[in-house]
């Protein structure tokens, strides 16, 4: 209980809360920078800290080391941050929008659709008009197509009900998964290994090109989400209540679907299908800081980046044989999720 007698008291309280939020976000941002710098030193090509520092300051004559740091590690880490942020924020938005703790990009079928699009490009060269952007381009296009199909399926004349939307997503996702399996069954071994590798999710081939490709849609999606923080908070009280308070639910739904399609499409296009990130990260932060999206979205962006960097670094160097990062997140995701289910107390999902 706090003593609030006057408007000034309330203003001070609000300012204190706001300051606390800002410092948490700043701490997360700092954490991200630190993680970035630490993981910059880890990789299969051995470089000492002094080597790295001299390369970063531009004073090194070691061209091979520069190649490794500037053309291999830095863009790979930046891609990890972008994808981690995109998947985490999208998972958060989906969980709030559908009031379902299981909601995540893979649940809505987006990842399966995108994977199928990429497989079409790999197997039959569909989308060749995009040249070297064939595979990411097809992943992206199918991301939107899937989202559109899900939305169309769930539309009734009374509008879209969130549970129906989720079910439609599961159905469409299952459909594309099935199609993907069929495709894998009929192609020859060379192409098959390419498809399987792609669907396992990896940052192995993420360089500057990938980063440039993904950063625009991911940023666009994240910006839309950032501008909808108030609406997302309101929707957390329930769609009916939010509408009563003045939120245009239809417009919000479309905007959020657009935003998550952009963010997830951009991610899947460069790194393949990486599961569980959109599920785990939002839950961690919701447990730590509560349900306010003004805090949660920036934290998911920074925290998602930290999480993805950590996962990728572990996947590529902790084991004798490099693991695709998607496999690692799945292995960690399941037991973590069970843990979350058993310990969360503050939430009563609908």
């Amino acid at each position: 209980m706090i003593e609030l007698k006057t408007v000034e008291d309330l203003e001070n309280y609000q300012r204190a809360v706001s300051r606390r939020s800002k410092s948490i976000v700043a701490a997360a941002g700092l954490g991200l920078i630190l993680t970035f710098l630490v993981t910059l030193m880890i990789g299969n090509y051995s470089l000492s800290i002094t080597d790295i520092l001299s390369i970063l300051s531009g004073m090194s004559g070691d061209s091979v080391g520069s190649y490794i740091i500037i053309d291999v590690r830095v863009p790979r880490l930046l891609c990890c941050i972008a994808v981690g942020a995109a998947l985490s924020a999208s998972g958060l938005v989906m969980q709030s929008l559908f009031k379902n703790p299981m909601a995540s990009p893979s649940v809505l079928g987006i990842s399966s659709g995108a994977a199928f699009g990429a497989a079409l490009a790999l197997a039959f060269g569909i989308g060749g008009f995009m040249g070297r952007y064939m595979v990411p381009g097809m992943a992206f296009i199918f991301c939107f197509l899937t989202m559109g199909a899900v939305y169309m399926l769930a539309r009734t004349k009374y509008g879209v009900v969130s549970t129906t939307l989720l079910l439609a997503g599961v159905a469409i996702g299952a459909f594309f998964s099935g199609m993907l399996s069929l495709l894998q069954y009929v192609v020859n071994e060379n192409v098959l290994s390419g498809i399987v590798y792609w669907t396992m999710g990896s940052f192995n081939n993420c360089g500057w090109q990938s980063f440039q490709l993904a950063i625009i849609p991911i940023s666009a999606g994240l910006l839309i989400m950032l501008f909808s923080i108030k609406e997302l908070n309101l929707i957390a009280a329930g769609e009916e209540q939010a509408a009563n308070i003045g939120v245009n639910i239809k417009k919000l739904r479309i905007l959020m679907i657009l935003a998550t399609s952009l963010a997830v499409g951009g991610s899947v296009a460069i790194s393949g299908v990486i599961g569980f990130v959109g599920l785990i990260v939002p839950h961690i932060f919701r447990m730590l800081v509560g349900p306010n999206h003004a805090l949660l979205i920036p934290l998911c962006v920074f925290g998602g980046g930290i999480f993805m960097i950590a996962m990728d670094t572990i996947a590529k160097s902790a084991f004798a044989m490099a693991l695709p990062v998607g496999v690692l997140t799945s292995l960690i995701g399941a037991p973590f999720f069970i843990y979350v289910m058993r310990t969360r107390k503050n939430e009563i999902w609908d």
Binding site: E231, A236, I245, P291, N292, I348
Partner: peptide, 16 residues
């Protein structure tokens, strides 16, 4: 309520 917003945050939602 599904999410544990603070009372202050909840009332502030009305200002939307």
């Amino acid at each position: 309520v599904t999410f544990p917003f603070s009372v202050y945050d909840t009332v502030t939602m009305g200002r939307y």
